[in-house]
């Protein structure tokens, strides 16, 4: 009797969760399922499974070039964003500087701006200065959007606990450089990793900056965008599933790093 009562009490909540989950997962499941479609349209009925669209994706030279570009732009722009963010966060957390609140605000300001506006600004500026659209231009834009995020993550991790260890090292005669590389960096590397992975994920998925600042060499989301003009196509499902899969793997890596750290502390 009491278990029936309990069941009835939990029923509405369970139903609600199932319904919302169904809504949330419907498009992703459809995307992945019909990437294994046998025939030429990714619509019901499902007549797979077939791997031929993945074969088509991996033998498509334009897609593979775009994939390559995305990885390079993502890795290099994220490395740069993390490096710039770490240096600035270290200085702002350790040294009292005049107007430090203003500098913090300025560095994090792009966080509350639309990517579209950042992209438009860069497009017009590069255009006015005669700088050609290129993968480098996209990378510059991705550093702009990721630097504030990396800064916020790293800054929040530079607490008093590390500062004490740094002071101890200094008292023992360590140079400023060895303090940074031998004490601070090892202490906060999980934050640096988290910042890097998050940056890479955002760069990997970013569309509007990449779209406006590229001409011949494009990144994966822009190439997928141009595939859309051919309508519904299982090949688009396949490359979309690949992109999704990569993001998920990155996130699992990130989670493992952060969880592992939480367990130790």
């Amino acid at each position: 009797m009491s278990s029936l009562k309990r069941f009835l009490r939990l029923l509405p909540a369970t139903l609600y969760v199932l319904l919302v989950f169904a809504f949330i997962f419907l498009p992703v499941v459809t995307l992945v399922l019909f990437s294994f479609q046998g025939s030429r349209l990714p619509i019901p009925p499902f007549d797979g499974p077939s791997l031929k669209w993945y074969g088509a994706v991996f033998s498509d030279r334009r897609l593979m070039a775009a994939l390559n570009h995305s990885i390079w732009v993502g890795v290099l722009s994220s490395l740069l964003a993390v490096a710039l963010a770490f240096l600035a966060a270290y200085a702002l957390a350790r040294v009292k500087l005049p107007l430090s609140n203003l500098w913090r605000w300025l560095i994090t300001a792009p966080l509350s701006m639309s990517y579209l506006i950042i992209a438009m600004g860069l497009l017009i500026t590069f255009n006015a200065l005669g700088i050609a659209k290129s993968l480098v231009a996209i990378g510059i834009g991705h550093v702009v959007i990721n630097l504030p995020l990396c800064f916020a993550i790293i800054f929040s991790q530079l607490g008093e606990q590390q500062a004490r260890l740094e002071r101890a090292a200094r008292d023992l005669g360590a140079s400023e450089l060895s303090v940074m590389t031998l004490i601070t960096l090892p202490l906060i590397w999980p934050a640096l990793f988290a910042a890097f992975f998050l940056s890479f994920t955002l760069s990997w998925d970013e569309f509007i900056i990449a779209f406006l600042l590229s001409r011949f060499d494009v990144t994966l989301p822009v190439e997928i965008w141009s595939l859309l003009s051919s309508g519904l196509n299982p090949k688009t499902n396949a490359i979309g599933s690949v992109v999704f899969g990569v993001s998920i793997v990155l996130l699992i890596l990130l989670e493992t790093i952060l969880l592992g750290r939480r367990r130790r502390t």
Binding site: P27, L31, W204, D205, F207, W225, G240, F244, S247, I248
Partner: peptide
Amino acid sequence: WTSYVVRSYSW
């Protein structure tokens, strides 16, 4: 974590 373009295409 699906990209904007892929998510809209899925819908």
